[in-house]
């Protein structure tokens, strides 16, 4: 049995040529060629329709912000409720170091000018166990983003996480997101977060242990002021 030539199938699928009598006979008997032709016709039709969906514009940025706001804190907060006890002690121990986290200036270079105005900022200073050269700055922008710039953080086998903590009740905190290798990291602050209450910025060292609660190993701290 002589099957239809692949080039011929393409021409038929594109309606560039029409099926002749012997091909029609063959197609009637041969399920394989029938399938090939039907599939290629479908592909040709979809190909024609594809013009309108090439290079679609990306969704507006506010959609991404809503996504980012949703994916960052959820796991952390639910896990924290479960495991609060472990967190309390190291925080209280570290609380003394908070007093230190006041002064200090950090040279800060902005890679591109922020579109939104700065509504709050904090200078981050190292806790007692952390090399004194470590530090950073945090700015919260009017569009709800937080820009974090840190330097000389101790190397970790895990990752560095940013938190906003209520200094009046150190068991209350919001996970903001994790830092990357880039110097200027932008993280969304969950909409509705009360920055007057959650004003203590905390950068922690988190192991990859699948436990989303604060590890208790704080590295940098600073308080947001407007």
């Amino acid at each position: 049995m002589q099957h239809l030539d692949p080039d011929r199938l393409v021409l038929l699928a594109l309606s560039e040529e029409t099926v002749d009598a012997s091909e029609s006979d063959h197609l009637e008997r041969c399920a394989g060629c029938r399938l090939d032709l039907a599939s290629l016709r479908e592909v040709a039709e979809l190909g024609g329709e594809s013009q309108e969906v090439r290079d679609l514009p990306p969704p507006p940025e506010h959609v991404w912000r809503a996504i980012a706001a949703e994916i960052t804190p959820v796991a952390d907060l639910t896990a924290r409720r479960r495991r609060r006890a472990r967190w309390v002690r190291p925080v209280l121990a570290a609380a003394a170091a908070l007093v230190v986290a006041a002064g200090g200036t950090v040279a800060y270079l902005v890679s591109r000018p922020p579109a939104a105005s700065v509504t709050a900022r904090a200078t981050l200073t190292p806790l007692a166990t952390v090399p004194a050269s470590a530090g950073g700055t945090v700015r919260v922008l009017s569009d709800g983003e937080m820009r974090v710039d840190v330097r000389n953080l101790p190397l970790t086998t895990g990752f560095h996480e940013v938190w906003l903590i209520d200094p009046d009740d150190l068991t209350k905190m919001v996970a903001i997101g994790s830092l990357t290798d880039r110097p200027d990291v932008v993280l969304p602050v969950p909409p509705g977060t009360d920055l007057n209450r959650y004003r203590l910025v905390d950068i922690s060292d988190e192991p990859h242990d699948g436990d989303a609660a604060h590890s208790g190993r704080s590295l940098l701290r600073g308080t947001l002021t407007s």
């Binding site: 592909v43 979809l46 190909g47 329709e49 594809s50 013009q51 969906v53 090439r54």
Partner: peptide, 8 residues
């Protein structure tokens, strides 16, 4: 249509 456009 979207899948075909992407592959194209």
């Amino acid at each position: 249509r979207l899948v075909v456009a992407d592959e194209l």
